[in-house]
Simulated scan of single mutants.
Amino acid sequence: MIRIITDSGSDISQSEASKLGITVIPLKVRFNDIEYIDDVTITNEEFFNRLVESDELPKTSQLTPFDYTNVFDMIDKNDKAIVICLSGNLSGTYNSAFVASSDYDNIYVIDSKNVTIGQRLLVLRALELTKKYNNIDEILNILETEKKKIRLVALLDTLEYLKKGGRISATTALVGELLNIKPVLAVEDGKIVLIGKARGSKNGNNKLREVIEKYHGIDYKKPYAVAYSGLDDSLLQKYIADSKDLCDKDIPKVLIGSVIGTHIGPGAIAMAFFSHGDDLNAK
């Protein structure tokens, strides 16, 4: 049997993981001196409640090799496991999994080069492949190839949390807020990059559409999803209503968790999908 293991950076909840038959190892988030276990001792809703009330950004901690060996020891020696980690360019979690796997012959670690719903898609794709193929090398080769086509694009509602995290200056944040600037972010080669700016949510939605078109559209034969951050999904619902040709009514909707929520704050919307193209600049 081939098992799938991932971390809570994928924003796959423990309850969903149980239904899917996979293992999600939770990361930890700390507000001041209090540490919480992601989606175990703090829900995503509780996280955002605390985030908007806190003057300082919480801190998330990577998983350790010990966290992984605790899980690996529970895998039957006759089974194999594929471990899909959040981007190694965003966290040391992938490196911890890789180090821990060196003591096991039946554990295979993949750097998703993504996070939140982008990472989630690779996990779901892995599940599909385990039902189709018995050869783990074949599954791993497909995942390594197809992960390069996962696109995650997001529209932020506020610059406040990028400012708090020191990613932009206070002046840039102030000007952006005054001009109602909405940054458009993407994950490229495992890194979060700014790919555009929009004035207002409507223009932001149009910008997301432009980016999807530049990525040559969505491969609907593979998993895809949308996500939002915060306690209100009205901006996401508006985006879905305005993008009926891209998003069907049954598209999976995910609440972004602490790993990315810490940096983007509430009010963000995102979409992740497998693209038909290889890069953003291809014509």
Rank of each mutant, 00 (worst) to 15 (best):
L156K: 07
I260P: 08
T43W: 11
H263A: 14
T145N: 13
Q237A: 12
G261R: 08
L51W: 07
L27F: 04
T69H: 09
G204M: 05
T6M: 06
G165H: 11
I192D: 11
S15T: 15
I136D: 03
A154G: 14
F98E: 14
I251E: 04
L127W: 03
L140H: 08
L51I: 02
N114V: 06
D67A: 02
K163L: 04
F31E: 01
L255P: 03
K113E: 14
N180D: 10
I142A: 01
G257S: 06
G217K: 07
H216L: 12
S101G: 10
G204V: 07
F274S: 09
N141E: 15
L57A: 04
P65L: 09
V254H: 00
L156I: 08
D219I: 01
T64D: 01
G9R: 08
T64Y: 06
E53F: 06
T6Y: 07
T6L: 06
L90R: 02
T43A: 07
D73A: 12
A282I: 12
K149S: 13
L208D: 03
K131F: 10
S54C: 10
G118E: 02
D67W: 00
I22S: 00
V254W: 00
T64S: 11
V71P: 04
Y220R: 15
G9N: 09
V71G: 02
V175I: 15
D79H: 04
A173V: 05
T116R: 08
G196Y: 11
I12F: 02
L129M: 06
I251G: 01
F48E: 03
D7Q: 12
M74D: 13
L20Q: 07
D38T: 04
Y36H: 14
N106S: 12
E46Y: 09
S13L: 06
I34K: 01
T60G: 07
L246C: 00
I251A: 10
T158G: 00
E46S: 04
G118I: 02
F66V: 07
L122I: 15
H263E: 07
S13N: 02
T64M: 07
T130Y: 01
D73V: 10
T93N: 12
S91M: 11
A17V: 04
A241F: 12
K59L: 08
Y161R: 02
Y224L: 02
D245S: 14
I256R: 09
V29I: 00
T145K: 13
I256D: 01
L121I: 05
V99A: 11
G261L: 10
T172F: 11
V254S: 05
V226T: 05
D73P: 07
F48Q: 03
D67G: 00
L255C: 04
T43I: 10
D103V: 09
I269W: 08
T172D: 09
G277S: 12
T145S: 14
K214W: 11
V153S: 13
K197V: 13
Y104C: 10
C85I: 11
E210G: 11
V153N: 05
A270P: 06
I25E: 03
F72N: 04
R209D: 00
